[in-house]
Design a binder for these strands. Sequence first.
DNA 1: CTTGGGACCTGTGAGC
DNA 2: TGCTCACAGGTCCCAA
Length: 285
Amino acid sequence: MPELPEVETVRRGLAPVMEGRTLARVILRRENLRFPFPDGFGQMLTGRKIESISRRAKYLLFHLQGGVVMIAHLGMSGRFRIFTETPPAEEKHDHVIFETNDGTTIRYNDPRRFGFMLLTTTEEMACHPLLEKLGPEPVDLNLSAAELARQLEDRLVGQLKGRKSPIKTVLLDQTVIAGLGNIYVCEALFRAGISPQKKADRIKRNSIKLLAPAIVDILQEAIKSGGSSLRDHRQPSGELGYFQHRFAVYGKEGEACPKCGPAHPVRRITQSGRSTFYCAACQKS
DNA sequence: CTTGGGACCTGTGAGC
DNA sequence: TGCTCACAGGTCCCAA
């Protein structure tokens, strides 16, 4: 279920049990996920201290001692589970097991295996093919929401030019803005009152001025919601990756529009093979 | 260069 | 109960 807020929630869950710890064991229970694990994956990680865990777009970056960086992506169905006590038997699709020096087990489970884990280094990270073309971050703890919205607005003004695809599709392009996925694109367009079918290069400046802060706000709210529900789920075998969040339109086909009521039920259409949820009355710009 | 479609996987729920 | 189909939060690759 991972878009940017989910990945950030996972990062915040993993940080307290992994940062500052040394990896005592790394067990691969199969040889590949979406990509093969790199040669020497386990050996490269074992015995190294995890200095920090950061995030770029939907990628988790585990910064280890000696400049080693593990890049992890959760794909569609990847999850981490944390066990601070003796862990139960492995479950189906538990593909990777990390054990820290202080006795915590972290398991990566991924039924569809669209996720992956790769290795890079601090020096090569900046020009890593997966990372170098990513657009700006819509969430950054060091910047205010207003400043982030300003940056996104500039980015959108520049990037929407000459784009004939629907705005929905363009916002899913990780090189335009990093981290948006199907849910939050729908939600942001709804909040900004923009039709998902509008050609990107015909979005008016005023609409961009609404869209940029809508994106920032939606994502930050989702992270807040994830954070609180993460606490609720902090069981001995806390699961990371799911949280409850109320969506305005996503998955609400046929339900009353939250803005204009039952007169205009939420519609579902398909764009580039993926579902889009929107209100035809509220989203006309 | 942009764009659209298929590919990669497994699981789940609806309908018959 | 069991089958089939549509669909699922992502991204890469290739043809046009």
